[in-house]
Each structure stands twice: as structure tokens, then as C-alpha cells.
């Protein structure tokens, strides 16, 4: 193989190409043959310098960059993704179902419109003297059964108000007003179940619920005891609005749940540590008594000033007895 001819005829680029080709095969043997064959020193220098440059560009440089990438030491890219980070914790979030504002769960009513006895007289005729001596058929005609629904509702409103009246003619006191509204609200809520597309009633109902809540807020400020009594009598729940109201989002909820999860873990660990320390307490106290007694005896026998008093030892003993008794009681309770 005439190597000098070969080197002379190939251009700079073709040399590089050739080396790239032979580099994959057994290259070192070939190189040694070539070097021995070379005559021109200048050509040799050129060849070697070309080879090293080419080797650096094609082989070494990508290798270095690759190793950087593998070690995650790339100087430009950041190490972690800072967006859309997904937690590994298995927390399942369930979006709470939206409850319409007029529903009893949201309005704070703990009871709904009850079944009313239809054999009662209408509100306008309940004190009528004529009815007492009237015919059975006439009596029946004046019952709630034969009156429109609003008569039944009126009856219910009055009965609700009666629960809190101050005196016979009390229709305007704060509690009587709230009670009357409660009656109206419960009747409307019952209607809304049957007529869910009645938008006018829906608005009226919402406004009334809000007004009742406002009045309850005032009553709470003026007279707390009366407020609590009214809640109990009318069977209402008062939950004030939270300070920061925001619509529920997945991200926010998951953050809160993760916080709660972490808190629970911390609490569990503390509880375990507490139990462990409590179980070690009797052994520790026994050891303490032993050591204190030993020190006291030693001090006595050596005629040195006694620093450990008997009271101290007795105190520890008492504590130990108390502990043992407690454990006994707990065991008995468990059985």
C-alpha cells in the first residue's frame, strides 16, 4: 500500500472522513503501519495534527457533552421542573357537590316543612262560635283540607311564631319576626322541591334567607343569650361566613389536603413517641431510685455531706406507685 501517494492525493476533508471511517475498526494497527510508511515529516505533522483535531471534534467533544447531560450538570438547563409538579402522595381529592343556596343544608334549617293535620280549622275561623254548633259537613268545609295551600302555610307560620312570642299581641319583636320568616322559608323550600323552575320564588327565598341571617347576626350582637335560645327553639344552625371566600380549585384543595396529611404524620409520630416514653417511665424511675439510694449510702459511708435527701427518694417512689396504679386502672378498663 503506497501510503505517501494516498496522503498526498487526499484533501484535508477527505482525510477526516477517512479517519472517521477507520476509527470504527481496528485503528491503532493501521496507524502504526502508516507512520512507518510516511517519508515526509511535514506530512506526518499535518496528519497527526489533523487526526487529533478531528478526534476531538468527532469523538471527545460529544462524549464530554454527553457525560455532562448524563450527570445532569448541564450549565444552562435547570435541574428540576418547576411547573406542573405532581405529588407522589396518594391523596384523592373529591370535589364537593354544589348545594343550591335555598336548600335547608345551606340555609341552616335543621328541619323541613312538616306534615300538617288537615282536619284543623282555617286560621280565620278557628275561634268562630257558630262553627261549634254547625253541621258536620259545614265544619268539614272550614278545615284546611278544603282551603288553598296558603292557608296551611299561614297556619304553620303562626304556629312557628307562637313558639317565641313575648305576649299575646307580639308580632313585631325580633324573635317573632325571625320565627315567622322561618315558617315562610320552610314552606317555600318545600315548594321549590316541587317547582324547581320557579325562578321568582327562588329569588324571593334566597333574599328572605339572607335577611333572616342578617337579623340573626344583629340579635347575636345585641343579646347573645336570646340568640342561642332562638336557635334552639327554632332548630336553626348559625354558621358565619368564612373571612376568605374563594371558589374551590383543584390545586388549592390539594395543597390543603397535603398540609393536612403532613400534620397527621407529625401527630402520629409524636403520639408514638409519647407512648414509648410513657412505657419507659417505670423502668427509668426504678433506676433513678436505685442510683439515688446508692449515692446516699455512699455519701453516708464516706462521711461526706449528704446531698441526696430521703424526701427526694420518697417523692420518686410515690410517683412510681402512682404510675403503676394508673397502668393497672387502664388495664382493668380495657378488660
Amino acid at each position: 500500500m503506497n501510503s505517501t501517494r494516498l496522503v498526498r492525493c487526499v484533501t484535508f476533508v477527505s482525510v477526516k472522513r477517512y479517519f472517521r471511517l477507520v476509527n470504527n475498526k481496528r485503528f491503532s494497527n493501521l496507524l502504526s503501519v502508516w507512520i512507518s510508511c510516511l517519508i515526509n515529516l511535514r506530512q506526518l505533522v499535518l496528519l497527526i495534527s489533523n487526526f487529533y483535531l478531528d478526534y476531538f471534534i468527532t469523538e471527545l467533544f460529544p462524549f464530554v457533552m454527553n457525560s455532562f447531560r448524563l450527570l445532569k450538570l448541564h450549565p444552562i438547563k435547570t435541574q428540576f421542573r418547576e411547573y406542573a409538579l405532581k405529588s407522589d402522595l396518594k391523596i384523592k381529592w373529591v370535589r364537593p357537590e354544589k348545594i343550591p343556596c335555598f336548600k335547608p343544608e345551606k340555609s341552616g334549617d335543621l328541619e323541613t316543612f312538616p306534615e300538617i293535620d288537615k282536619k284543623l280549622y282555617q286560621e280565620d275561623f278557628k275561634n268562630c262560635k257558630e262553627l261549634k254548633t254547625a253541621n258536620e259537613l259545614v265544619k268539614k268545609l272550614f278545615t284546611l283540607e278544603f282551603a288553598p295551600r296558603n292557608e296551611t302555610v299561614r297556619h304553620y307560620i303562626n304556629r312557628t311564631s307562637d313558639k317565641v312570642r313575648r305576649h299575646v299581641n307580639d308580632y313585631g319583636s325580633h324573635e317573632a319576626t325571625i320565627a315567622a320568616w322561618t315558617g315562610v322559608i320552610r314552606a317555600m323550600q318545600e315548594s321549590m322541591e316541587r317547582l324547581p323552575r320557579n325562578k321568582i320564588m327562588k329569588v324571593q327565598l334566597k333574599e328572605l334567607i339572607d335577611r333572616r341571617k342578617k337579623f340573626l347576626k344583629y340579635l347575636r350582637r345585641w343579646d347573645y343569650k336570646r340568640f342561642e335560645w332562638l336557635l334552639e327553639t327554632l332548630n336553626l344552625k348559625y354558621v358565619p361566613m368564612p373571612l376568605d371566600v374563594h371558589w374551590i380549585t383543584r390545586k388549592d384543595s390539594l395543597t390543603k389536603l397535603t398540609d393536612k396529611y403532613c400534620d397527621d404524620i407529625r401527630k402520629d409520630k409524636l403520639e408514638k413517641l409519647k407512648l414509648q416514653l410513657q412505657s419507659e417511665q417505670p423502668a427509668f424511675l426504678e433506676e433513678k431510685i436505685r442510683i439515688l439510694e446508692f449515692i446516699r449510702n455512699e455519701q453516708k459511708s464516706c462521711n461526706v455531706e449528704v446531698t441526696v435527701h430521703q424526701d427526694e427518694i420518697d417523692n420518686v417512689k410515690r410517683r412510681l406507685d402512682d404510675l403503676k396504679e394508673k397502668v393497672k386502672q387502664l388495664n382493668q378498663e380495657e378488660i
Partner: peptide
Amino acid sequence: KDFSHVETYMKYH
């Protein structure tokens, strides 16, 4: 029936 002594929150879960 009275929950005004605690911090309430919007139900999120």
C-alpha cells in the same frame, strides 16, 4: 347550633 366561635372555611373536599 352556633358555630361562630370557630374559624369556618369553604368546603373543599
